[in-house]
């Protein structure tokens, strides 16, 4: 019996540095309810509304020329904007991470700038340059070049809003990795390009993939900036998010949510892949440790 007497009850605290079980349960419940209400419910609504009138009504939303045109334009826009920003991001982070020069922090701040500009203002500035009353608008009209209310404007506005994605992910990552490996490659006789391909690129590949994923999601989903420069010409300058808006404003809710469900699906796939990458390659995606 003496042995039993010295046995301690099982509900002893697991750690002295946590809250009591009741408080813990309560906080977890509040957090989950809050997230469910504010984040998950809207997402679920998209699918519920999209299928409100059944499969046929859902599919009908995609069986029309305007929807096809919107899908095509969204894909084209992303196909230009994402590779552009991919190349820019890699080149910029090479210049910034592998060299020490004055004004570097200012340059990083400027690259980050589009993130702190309202999407509407992002569209506005292109109207101010290329619009009929814009800086070079009259010259463009003279030469019969259409940028605003046309595909080039949409692409430009999309590039603007997704501009920092790749660069801001790669700069800290490459800064953390330093230059020792590249220098080693160079001493072994590799050319700069060869060193980049065989040493740098493999080191940043997961971070690159991660940032491209996020960049693509934003490029396909951008609404505000694109809305300002597009002119909403059905079948010509409507991307998927703009198409969603038009259908919604026409009270064509099922079609609107059906198209929206396509974009929501994209968001879910993006989130899934993103989480997977974070889980598998945490150390290879972002600079670890704290920012100094």
């Amino acid at each position: 019996m003496s042995e039993i007497a010295t046995d301690l009850p099982r509900q002893q605290p697991a750690s002295v540095v946590t809250e009591g079980g009741l408080v813990r349960g309560l906080l977890i419940a509040v957090a989950i309810v809050f997230l469910a209400l504010f984040l998950v419910l809207p997402l679920a609504t998209v699918f519920v509304q999209a299928f409100a009138k059944g499969w046929d009504a859902y599919l009908a939303a995609f069986h029309e020329a305007d929807a096809h045109a919107a899908i095509r334009l969204t894909l084209i826009t992303a196909a230009i904007a994402v590779p552009f920003n991919l190349v820019f991001g890699v080149v910029a982070s090479w210049a910034i991470a592998k060299f020490e020069f004055r004004g570097k922090n200012l340059l990083i701040t400027l690259i980050d700038l589009p993130f702190s500009v309202s999407p509407v203002v992002s569209g506005l500035i292109y109207v101010l340059v290329f619009g009929s009353q814009g800086l070079i608008g009259p010259w463009l009209i003279e030469h019969d070049i259409q940028i605003i209310f046309a595909v080039p404007g949409i692409v430009l506005a999309t590039i603007f809003v997704t501009f920092p994605f790749v660069a801001r992910q790669l700069i800290p990552l490459m800064q953390e990795q330093g230059t020792a490996e590249e220098e080693a490659a160079l001493t072994l006789g590799a050319s700069g390009w060869h060193a980049f391909r065989t040493v740098t690129l493999p080191n940043i590949r997961w971070g690159l993939l991660y940032s491209v994923l996020l960049c693509n999601a934003r490029a396909m989903g951008e609404f505000g900036a694109v809305s300002v420069v597009s002119g909403h010409i059905r079948g010509l300058t409507n991307t998927l998010p703009l198409h969603v808006e038009i259908l919604y404003n026409e009270y064509n809710f099922v079609a609107s949510f059906a198209v929206a469900s396509l974009l929501a699906g994209l968001a879910l796939v993006t989130l899934g892949l993103k989480s997977l990458l974070e889980w598998r390659y945490a150390g290879d995606i972002a600079a670890s440790g704290r920012r100094h």
């Binding site: 998209v46 996020l214 999601a217 396909m220 989903g221 609404f223 919604y248």
Partner: peptide, 21 residues
């Protein structure tokens, strides 16, 4: 993962969903 939903979900989609909800 759910926390990042507003980052990934296009704003127009979030907009109509919130409006109808």
């Amino acid at each position: 993962a759910v926390v990042d939903l507003p980052f990934a979900l296009p704003t127009a989609v979030a907009g109509i969903a919130l409006a109808s909800l």
